[in-house]
Simulated assay, not measured.
Amino acid sequence: MRYLLLAALLLAGCASTPQYALLDPQAANVTKAANLLPIQFEFQDSRADQSVIHMPKNVLSNDSGLDQRIASRLREGLKAKGFTLAPDADAKLIVSLVKLSSVVNKGFASYKSEQQVVMIAKVEKGNHTMTKRFTSNGSFEAPFGPDIGRLEEELNNLTTQTMTSLLSDPQITQLLSN
């Protein structure tokens, strides 16, 4: 039995690791506030490094198109909230993705992962400007080696949670709608 477990661990270590993490967060879960004023919307991926999963012997970057998917989910959330997106509106919401990361530390027969997603929202309306930071953290421990699918799922969930917090923020909604 001991040799069978050792063989399984060795074979698991030989499996190839993908080069990219496939991230696709869900749309933010927001409550419609009413028919609010039109706003401009802009999304920026401000990360200096596109690496999202950091393992002891490997680093995975996000797949191309992640910024378009996040921007699309944020637009969906703004429309669900009641905003109309218009390029010439007086109010402007700029969302920057600052961090999207999962750091994996391997133990003898387990691994621990710590994730963090950080977005900054900047609202500009007339002479008023407001900037807020939204952070979601997570961690888990699991047996054997890192499960890329689980790591991707955790990052997707935290990204959705961060977008929901941002779009549900009463100060942002108030400044954009007044």
Rank of each mutant, 00 (worst) to 15 (best):
M1R: 15
R2P: 02
L4P: 01
L6Y: 09
A8Y: 04
A12F: 05
A12Q: 07
A12S: 12
S16I: 02
S16C: 04
T17H: 00
P18K: 06
Y20Q: 12
A21L: 04
A21V: 13
L22W: 01
Q26N: 14
A27M: 07
A28Y: 06
V30I: 06
T31R: 12
A33M: 02
A34P: 00
N35A: 15
N35T: 11
L37Y: 01
F41Y: 13
F41S: 02
F41P: 02
F43R: 04
S46N: 15
V52I: 08
V52Q: 02
H54L: 15
M55H: 01
P56L: 00
P56A: 07
P56Y: 00
N58I: 03
D63S: 15
D63K: 12
D67V: 01
I70L: 09
I70Q: 12
A71Q: 08
E76Q: 07
G77D: 09
L78Y: 08
L78K: 05
G82E: 01
F83W: 02
L85T: 11
L85W: 12
P87V: 12
P87G: 07
P87M: 11
D88E: 14
D88C: 01
A91R: 04
K92E: 14
L97M: 10
L97E: 11
L100V: 03
V103Q: 14
V104F: 01
N105P: 03
K106P: 04
A109H: 02
A109G: 10
K112T: 12
K112D: 15
E114A: 15
E114D: 13
Q116C: 10
M119T: 04
A121G: 08
V123L: 05
N127I: 04
H128V: 13
T129D: 06
M130V: 08
R133I: 07
R133C: 03
F134G: 11
F134I: 13
F134W: 03
F140A: 07
P143F: 02
G145Q: 06
R150I: 03
E152C: 08
L155F: 01
L155T: 14
N157D: 13
N157H: 09
T162G: 10
M163N: 09
T164E: 04
T164P: 08
T164Y: 02
T164V: 04
S165L: 02
S168Y: 00
D169E: 05
D169G: 06
L176W: 10
L176D: 03
N178L: 10
